[in-house]
Design a protein around this nucleic acid. Sequence first.
DNA 1: CCATAAATGGAATATATATTCTATTTCGTT
DNA 2: AACGAAATAGAATATATATTCCATTTATGG
Lengths: 269, 269
Amino acid sequence: MELRDAPQTIEEFQVRFSEISGSLPKRLRQCADYIAINEDKIAVSTVAELAVAAGVQPSAFMRFCQLMGFSGYSEMQRLFRGAWGQRWPDYATRLQNLKSEGAGSPTALLAEFVEAGRVSLETLASTVDAEALKCSVEVLANAPMIHLLGLKRAFPVASYLAYAFEEMNIPALLHDCVGMLDHRNAIRRGDVLIAVTFAPYSSETLDLAQFARERDCPIVAITDSINSPLRKIGAHILSVSEVDFGSFRGLSATLSLAITLAVSVGSRR
Amino acid sequence: MELRDAPQTIEEFQVRFSEISGSLPKRLRQCADYIAINEDKIAVSTVAELAVAAGVQPSAFMRFCQLMGFSGYSEMQRLFRGAWGQRWPDYATRLQNLKSEGAGSPTALLAEFVEAGRVSLETLASTVDAEALKCSVEVLANAPMIHLLGLKRAFPVASYLAYAFEEMNIPALLHDCVGMLDHRNAIRRGDVLIAVTFAPYSSETLDLAQFARERDCPIVAITDSINSPLRKIGAHILSVSEVDFGSFRGLSATLSLAITLAVSVGSRR
DNA sequence: CCATAAATGGAATATATATTCTATTTCGTT
DNA sequence: AACGAAATAGAATATATATTCCATTTATGG
């Protein structure tokens, strides 16, 4: 069998696919036809399952994979199981290196965080709950006043929202806990609260959300897990996950979601 | 083990999840915490992979699956593999879909900002001044105290740095202008200032930088152009450009640079 | 503090799955 | 129709992965 490089991205996969799909014998054609329509199944199926579905033997499917340039089905599947996660088997090693030789190049570390950010953004694009987003914008567009709360790692997000709303002349108040002064009584009927919080959820945030709930104020939550405690109090949940490197997480995806929210609301007024 | 029906849908899964997630021992809690944030990985990962990611043994993960009502990991995975098709279309296709709602819709805006963020990240990675970055890390690693300043749109960056340094037990002070109280006299010989500023550069930031310069304190500037006024006073310039959409700019690249700076400095101590 | 139960880690085992091999069939050419 | 080359099916094997088991540790109640 010809030795060629395996496709490294979905795009390369598709190029290679159309290269070969003109000239294929019967069974391999069946494989190609099936794949063309069910690309998405590759990530979550076994060869045996795909073979049955395409009406061929597993061995035929294997030959197809090899024609595509992969060593076998497993390698092809790896490509589709999200380039993210353990795409690089040497993840642990790289982490080790960067930790041990702190003297090591910051540029390498930057590359890691850039990559993590990129993946986070892609994940956001493909997992965003369009319905919840639309709904949140709707709710916020009609609010006489928008309250913002986010502490610790979530604070930059909340403050960015405060900046964006102010720029667009939309009334918004950032609850920043300065001087332990509480502004909860500024929350009036009809106002909306945007609460930004990640695990471990700070109790101050949950408290204020609870307070808003008791006043029948809608709550929009930007959070990292679908089981966020804010779900229990009936908030509109916008969940977003950030890929971490080591124990550090960026905010690329979260901030992109935030700016989207702000601009969408702004354009509705 | 108690015999109960396994969840048949994602919704049932989530109900069961919040039922048990209140009362879990250490390791099983780790499993739950990881799952809560990475539900989407179940379909395409092995138990071993998830176990490593959650920091537990595979057997602990098995016990978690059984507590959830499944016979084992395989059964649980089957549930998520069924729902995989929902989030498939690859990045390019998905962006297309998001935009198809029509220009101005929240999802179309999200697509634009995600794309803008991605481009900004790539630009950062390929244009970063490695020498300046290394130099800045060097300077910061030896600082007895790091001062942080960034206003308006730059404030989220400064506050994120404050968070990151605090997490790593590195002495840092955020100059936040609360109450127009100035902390400039907290800047002592040997300290370093990280000034974050974008056009139009706010005079408060330039002022403080000037002040630091007069005290012979090194300055690291995160800014948007190589012609930033901070260059004139001899700061280490880390320049980063954000692609804009409409009149709004994200912070994906800037924050990635910031986190790199923080972690690099952290690993040097 | 002890006794007991619950939880855990790690290795051992069972099962599922990918991959290879070869006899047989199909296809294209003369 | 006869030959050689290519393609195929199905079983055999290798590998990856899930699952169980039990000795050890950690929590709990008296």
